[in-house]
Amino acid sequence: MQYLARSPEAEHATTTGLNNRKLLMWAFLGSDAMFFGPLIATHLIYRTESLQGPIEEILNIPVTTISTFVLLMSSLAMVLALAGIQQGKMGTFRFWTAMTALLGMVFIGFQMVEFTEFAKHGLTPRTNLFGSTFLTLTGFHGAHVTVGIIWLWSLFFASFRGKVKQENSLDVEIAGLYWHFVDIVWIVIFGVIYLVGAFGVEDRVLEGAHALAGLGG
């Protein structure tokens, strides 16, 4: 009998009746919120402090809206995968797990394109405060997504070796909690950093567009 990282205590009744690892994941997510908080705060504090180079006008709202859709849909796929394994439907579980991971990979693809575009237009982490804070924040978010993708593929392949089964659907639920957390961090980043941030620079969006056109030509 083998389970993923099952601690013996998890099989005993716990004091609260809650699973140790699930409680651990929630504690971790609370702690991880304390990690993203200062990164977002640093970005907001430095929003208007850059001395040179492109700032928020460089953000591409339409494209990011699409990548936000992608990440939201991956969350849907994740809950459907969980529902699948909870009902013992391995095919459903595998399909939606692979779908979640693939949508995550598409999101990372969008992010790579975005970062490359920024670099082409002269925005790197070294350029200015906007570049440092924005790329570090979204980069750490991308790193979280990447860890999630590896985790999901691990579950996917482990399921073929009989290590992910209906009776330990909790393993999937915990991975799902992590995945959804990464999604809500993005919801905050998209709202606060992209939309509110770029909105304040409406005029500069136009200037930026001209500048970009100039650079492109």
């Binding site: 609260t16 809650l18 699930k22 409680l23 929630w26 504690a27 997510l29 609370g30 919120a33 304390m34």
Partner: peptide, 11 residues
Amino acid sequence: NWRFSAFFFFP
């Protein structure tokens, strides 16, 4: 369970 909410929302 409410404890999960507490663990998350308090921090």
